[in-house]
């Protein structure tokens, strides 16, 4: 009896342990919501990660608008109207990679094993995290949009157009998030997920129409840019906020989302179940 902290009175333990009432197994929705709640708690406890995700889009907005904007579009104000929709897409993408990093952290730290050892609806683990991310996107999009408005961004599409863009970006990020889930399941450490995402994201963001019109580029580059799903997302957001969206543009954006989802969601679920999992 060398343990004498009053709180760890072991005689009280058996009483707490004889309650074997096992409640009914929760359904998919309840499980997903519980994991969403967990994701929200993480935002509450560690908001720094959220703050740091604003910095890059804000820097890019300022640098591109005031440094290159005049040269690129004739006036900084005209360029800002062009740039802001692209920056909104970039904002979401930058937060998006944390999906993979936090999944990988769960695996390497061991809590993933605890979840896998439970009799639960397993896709809820991933789905809940993605829903929690939706709140991050919303917060970040509001902050970046407000900054844009402050600098002189005047979306022709009005409030409805901007809301439509936010909704579309939620869908796009949800679909793209599966790519990071797959990376989070395969790679060895949260750091390597971070490295990979930086290596993939920067080329993808620059080889798109985020910063300049595709038509200004050489033909071979236009081919690359046009298969980049980010390009279609930017076109859709530009169309929504500008009130000029065509059915064709929107269809292509949905196709981009669909392709990402169809490739990476099944891949993630396969890796998730795979026995080769550490």
């Amino acid at each position: 009896m060398s343990t004498t902290t009053p709180a760890s009175d072991t005689r009280a333990v058996p009483q707490a342990l004889t309650t074997r009432t096992r409640p009914k197994r929760p359904g998919p929705l309840s499980t997903t919501w519980t994991f969403t709640w967990r994701a929200l708690l993480k935002i509450k406890h560690d908001p720094d990660q959220l703050y740091s995700s604003f910095i890059l889009p804000i820097m890019f907005t300022l640098v591109f608008t005031y440094l290159f904007g005049g040269a690129l579009a004739g006036s900084t104000s005209d360029y800002l109207q062009f740039l802001m929709p692209g920056i909104l897409v970039m904002t979401v993408i930058m937060i998006n990679m944390y999906t993979g990093i936090s999944l990988n952290t769960d695996i390497t730290k061991g809590i993933f094993d605890r979840f896998r050892g439970l009799s639960i609806w397993r896709p809820g683990i991933l789905a809940g995290a993605l829903l929690g991310d939706a709140l991050r996107y919303t917060i970040a999009l509001v902050v970046v949009t407000l900054l844009g408005l402050l600098l002189g961004f005047r979306p022709e599409g009005g409030v409805l157009g901007v809301l439509g863009a936010v909704l579309f970006l939620q869908l796009f990020a949800f679909c793209l998030g599966w790519m990071w889930n797959a990376a989070g399941l395969v790679l060895k450490s949260p750091e390597s997920v971070n490295q990979l995402s930086s290596m993939v994201l920067f080329p993808l963001v620059f080889a798109s129409n985020v910063f300049v019109e595709t038509s200004t580029m050489p033909g071979w580059l236009q081919v690359v840019v046009n298969v980049n799903p980010i390009t279609h997302a930017v076109t859709a957001v530009r169309g929504l906020t500008g009130g000029t969206l065509t059915a064709e543009q929107f269809t292509w954006a949905l196709v981009a989302c669909g392709v990402l989802l169809l490739v990476f969601a099944p891949l993630s679920m396969y890796l998730f179940r795979s026995k080769s999992l550490r």
């Binding site: 409640p23 929760p26 309840s30 519980t34």
Partner: peptide
């Protein structure tokens, strides 16, 4: 979190 996942 665990309690909720177990159905409480």
């Amino acid at each position: 979190l665990l309690g909720r996942l177990l159905g409480f």
